[in-house]
Design a protein around this nucleic acid. Sequence first.
DNA 1: ATTCGCTTGTCATCAGATTGTCAAAAGCGG
DNA 2: CCGCTTTTGACAATCTGATGACAAGCGAAT
Lengths: 228, 228
Amino acid sequence: MATILVIEDDARILKALERLFVAENFDFRTATDGADGLKLAASAAPDAVILDLMLPGLSGREICRTLKQSLPETPVIILSAISEVADKVLLLELGADDYVTKPFSPRELLARVQAAIRRSKRSRVRPTVAFGDVEVDFARMQATRRGSQVALTAHEFKLLRFFLDNPERVLTREELLNEVWGYNSYPSTRTVDNQILKLRQKLESNPAEPVHFCTVHGAGYRFIPAPQ
Amino acid sequence: MATILVIEDDARILKALERLFVAENFDFRTATDGADGLKLAASAAPDAVILDLMLPGLSGREICRTLKQSLPETPVIILSAISEVADKVLLLELGADDYVTKPFSPRELLARVQAAIRRSKRSRVRPTVAFGDVEVDFARMQATRRGSQVALTAHEFKLLRFFLDNPERVLTREELLNEVWGYNSYPSTRTVDNQILKLRQKLESNPAEPVHFCTVHGAGYRFIPAPQ
DNA sequence: ATTCGCTTGTCATCAGATTGTCAAAAGCGG
DNA sequence: CCGCTTTTGACAATCTGATGACAAGCGAAT
């Protein structure tokens, strides 16, 4: 199973995270300050690191930078109060792969960690995920197709992320509406079709005959990362 | 159908929830205090628990913690006033999987419960079923015969699933129409034959002499997973 | 064994449902 | 207020499932 290292000084959060990740069969390691964290990261070789930006001793930013220098391929997920990441550019500078703001939902954190690990396993170089001739960088909210930039909107990204997190599975329109749009909004199912249409137009080689974003008539849609 | 346990002391809310979930064919169980709730959770093995944080007797938090210890697989959805969950970290600490704040929309609660059940099942259910030289993956809605892809429609999958759930048993056309097509539609029995025909053509080695989808003259059909 | 009556297999066709697509309206943030 | 994103509604294109006709198969009685 995967190993995860959490660098965090709040005991409450540590305990909560332990419960969450142990339930998912992670090998769970912790450090309560930066120095410890860096040592453990070197010895335990975790598959991902969750890092609180607010720590005693070394600053979280410093730790992140150092981590990324010694273990560039290990994904780092930043845990922080909203105000601290008002500027996302900062996170990119730090080399972080993703971030979750406090207060956060357990599910979301888990999903992001798992996605980060998946991503890092697939391509050990950058925090990007690729399918077909498309490359997606979630940290930068950018996508490229055959090397050229494709602009995606916030919703399109959310939808794309959900597809990437649930490859091959048939996802019903309702499931997509619930998970991507949220439980409080009730757009018509036509909205989903339109959003799919956009993804196809932007990311498929031939939008008329989608290879990745496939229709399953009478059921919903299925994302297929690699055709064939 | 799925079983749901609601631990809640407000009779009005209980009644509302009962209407909601019974209409969706849930097996609906209730407890009005924590001790009862824990007992019922152990005996009824619900697929999900809805828990009010404000209860007489044991505190909701205590109940949640205990629930998660005894039944870590069972998703718990917290029901609470807004002020009680100002801090989502608290919920994480409790081990809850999701939460809804009062006043809540019935539809949202229902959606969240269903999503939670889906998620919990996704992680433990074996994804594929096999019979003869056929392999079926319901999550992906794909089937293969001797390793090669077979395209099945949504209805065909429904029918196939019902057969797989009721192997060896003779199923009358009426039974199939009710269970697979639903109680509201009344197609002729010829429709069933046609659907069976399709399954045979797609999944049988020799459709003319079916081995799995067998006719029981004068009665209906019987599914036989392993011939002989 | 043959025949008759009923049940089932099979096919082409058509109506209905589902989805793709577009343009206009409604939101939304700056 | 403007420009962009999202949603909606309408229509076309597509696919699916239901239907009915007819052939073939089965079982029982002759």
